[in-house]
Design a binder for these strands. Sequence first.
DNA 1: AGAAATGATGAATCAGATG
DNA 2: TCATCTGATTCATCATTTC
Lengths: 368, 368
Amino acid sequence: MIAGNRDSIDEASRVSSRIILGDCIAEMEAMPAKSVDLIFADPPYNLQLNGDLFRPEGSRVDAVDNDWDKFDTFGAYDNFTCRWLSAARRILKDTGTIWVIGSYHNIFRVGTVLQDLGYWVLNDIVWRKTNPMPNFKGTRFTNAHETMIWCSKSEKARYTFNYHAMKMLNDDVQMRSDWTIPICTGGERVKIGGVKAHPTQKPEALLYRVLMAASNPGDVVLDPFLGSGTTGAMAKMLGRSFIGIDREQAYVEVAQKRIAETRPLAPDAMQITRGKRQEPRVAFGTLVEAGLILPGQELVDTARRYKARVRADGSLAFRGDAGSIHQMGAAAQGAPSCNGWTFWHMERGGALEPIDTVREAYRRDLAA
Amino acid sequence: MIAGNRDSIDEASRVSSRIILGDCIAEMEAMPAKSVDLIFADPPYNLQLNGDLFRPEGSRVDAVDNDWDKFDTFGAYDNFTCRWLSAARRILKDTGTIWVIGSYHNIFRVGTVLQDLGYWVLNDIVWRKTNPMPNFKGTRFTNAHETMIWCSKSEKARYTFNYHAMKMLNDDVQMRSDWTIPICTGGERVKIGGVKAHPTQKPEALLYRVLMAASNPGDVVLDPFLGSGTTGAMAKMLGRSFIGIDREQAYVEVAQKRIAETRPLAPDAMQITRGKRQEPRVAFGTLVEAGLILPGQELVDTARRYKARVRADGSLAFRGDAGSIHQMGAAAQGAPSCNGWTFWHMERGGALEPIDTVREAYRRDLAA
DNA sequence: AGAAATGATGAATCAGATG
DNA sequence: TCATCTGATTCATCATTTC
């Protein structure tokens, strides 16, 4: 079913956006074979959440509890995955590629089905979130990334990969399989009456890079799980034709409005390069893990008044207490704070060397 | 089969390293059930690594007449994966966890089998390589990471996670699911006659973090695909008992030599930061009994909005009601729960001090 | 007006001991 | 096994309020 006759054709770029309200499997089965250049899919993750989760300060986390994310068993989810990926493969051109995003809850199931259906994995791409939600209970590692699987239609297939555009986007070095991009917040987040319109809106920067990497202006891009319409908005902006499908009337309306308000870039503006994010800091513990500073090592201040000992987790034992190099440096001096990197020193050939020089050496090795 | 009688027991740390030459499935099936605390596995990415390939039912295929299609190939790999992960699950303690590392070639199959066998995924961890091999042909993104899946034995199982040690290793912020660590090169790379002894030697920093995160000194660590022995070397260094299995005599010898040359850290250097969950419980009433807090003492929150009074039995009188410090804290805020230790404060010299500091002082006195 | 403090929030499989 | 109680736990970013 086509939602109204809101289909838009942008005269300047001669590309169209078509939004379909309906079940993506049935709708894809109704489309002509080998008619799509790129598929980006953000299927339900099958999160399997139990009760409520509260933050330390008492507020409740607004979790994804929508019906569309509920499946009875892994088998039911696998079956659903197999059916929509089969329908997608039929309409994908032989030179087309597919991207599917997910988390550890579902991405292994998706990857297995992709391989079983004959898709050929080109890369798995890690979206590193700069600002993920923390693990409030201190029970696991902060779940700070999601995974995208990028596949061609088959092993020998030729496919679009704009290698040089990616290199240009990345300060003239090859784009890696890990992408560092913030989650979608602020003005970019679509809201209705102050409430987020969709629980899992993807950042535009993510789709920008996907479309830049694996499609060209004029290509047909399909998103079978349209949601808030990020794929459609970026497709229009970058001069790609777009087909979006969603089962929910509310999401279709949100996406239609959003895409209608998106303006295509001028062709010459499409080659904007974007800067790389700054390199992450080096933790003291990293130097311990790397074997550059050994657990048990004694550290002293310049005057050798205070002595502390490095522990296996990168903390410092000092006068019966333990804490970070900064905390223990502050404790030694009775100061509110301290830069442990310059306060603490190691004996090196009779002389004292600040531990910061070890960090500098580590950074030099990384760069080399 | 046990390789010779080279088993070593380090007298200082009272932990042992045992290296076994043999097929890991058979060897694990011969081990006692629920006897291992942590499993780290780096399985082969394809079954042709040793010239051997298994059919779905487990029989060996001659790699020369490879006339099966992709489904058969994946089926054989899935079967192999299912068999070794089943054997691993039997010998894993109910409180144990397993780590499996892989790339997009195999990790989706591994993750699916893990979930199907009832393992419960805790995190997928991305090892970001600072210095990956470039993609020379410019046909894909630089494959700059590998993925580890970390699982408990079942959904409700309790497991070891040294949250505070991980936080300490990361400059006092939660450790994330993406770890930035260089690949194994230079002096750390084991070589024989100038040639690398193993094609996929893992960096010691990676195993250091895995073992620090999910095991404690004295735990039993198993690596069913021993290879160059990085897991064994780090286990010995960190005071864990180790069992390593490999089918290749050459790798067994390399690993044995490497582990023998590894020296354990001094026990006090192995100390890590533990959280309050590990400390002995002290009831609020105990502090009243001990005279550290007197009945009649007034307690307030940080904003001095709520006032309560300590009663002789260690309960708190608040607005005509009475109960524990936690119940009254929750009641004051209208919250479902509350940590009374940090919510309630006492006046001390004009400043407010949380009652938790009194508990801390009491614990210090106990330790002294 | 501008700076600083406070509050809100994001795909989350988020506790453990005791009776 | 289940109900009850204690009490441990958050990072980056943007928006809003207060100083």
